[in-house]
């Protein structure tokens, strides 16, 4: 037990560094995937058939294959196939590759949630906007958008909480996120070796973070409960 207390400060500091990388990946993914998903959803709803067909096939491929494969392909493909390792070898290169893979993957999931939300808005809302002389963009931003947001909060919170844990997949390209940090104490790091508890302890970070997100989403849901759609 005394050994645990001895090791704890070292492990805690290392895990914090890893978790910072996890958080960075999480927020960068959201920052890119939330708007990109909207663009993809417009593509898949386009009346221009070739565009919607291509978009839907793309979404099918991205959602239909493991994110881990996508990570590996995006990270290794340029170097091994093109002979041009665009990401470089360092941590920042791994982070960039992981962020691109996560943004593409999550944008596709988000796009389907957006599409469901947008298409669930009754046509009467569009018609009422039209006869009141609203433009297409006024209709979307002033009338439809908030109703869509209200409808998609539950599925989006589900997806975003999944993202918290999916960031651990970046471990496969050796991104130094929290799982990597926890694991490092098994083979040896900072003078500590053969310890598995740091890896278990990473679970506490995930639990706390997803707990905070759950509370935030509940709050948002409550905030939007003043109207019914």
């Amino acid at each position: 037990m005394s050994q645990f207390f001895q090791q704890f400060p070292t492990v805690f500091a290392a895990l914090n560094v890893g978790f910072f990388q996890t958080l960075k990946l999480f927020f960068c993914t959201l920052l890119g995937a939330l708007p990109l998903g909207l663009i993809i959803s417009f593509g898949s709803m386009s009346k221009f058939k070739p565009l919607s067909a291509v978009t839907r096939v793309f979404v099918w491929i991205v959602r239909g294959t493991p994110l881990m494969i996508q990570l590996l392909i995006i990270f290794f493909f340029p170097g091994l196939v093109w002979g041009n390792p665009i990401w470089g070898g360092g941590e920042s290169g791994r982070f960039a590759a992981a962020t691109v893979a996560f943004i593409i993957n999550y944008a596709c999931y988000f796009s389907e949630i957006y599409r469901g939300g947008i298409q669930s808005i009754p046509v009467g809302q569009h018609e009422a906007s039209q006869v009141l002389g609203l433009t297409k963009s006024q209709t979307f931003f002033r009338v439809v958008l908030l109703q869509v947001i209200k409808r998609i909060v539950p599925p989006m919170s589900n997806e975003i909480i999944t993202l918290v844990k999916d960031t651990s997949l970046a471990r496969i390209i050796a991104l130094q996120e929290i799982i990597w940090a926890g694991q490092s104490f098994m083979k040896g790091s900072h003078g500590i070796a053969g310890q598995i508890w740091p890896l278990f302890f990473t679970g506490v970070y995930y639990l706390l973070f997803s707990g905070i997100l759950t509370l935030l989403f509940n709050k948002l849901e409550k905030k939007l409960s003043y109207f019914k759609v």
Binding site: G124, E127, V131, V143, L146, Q147, K228
Partner: peptide, 12 residues
């Protein structure tokens, strides 16, 4: 102007 059967008020 048009008044709809289903009102179509903006709920928010």
């Amino acid at each position: 102007g048009l008044v709809f059967q289903q009102f179509n008020l903006f709920p928010q």
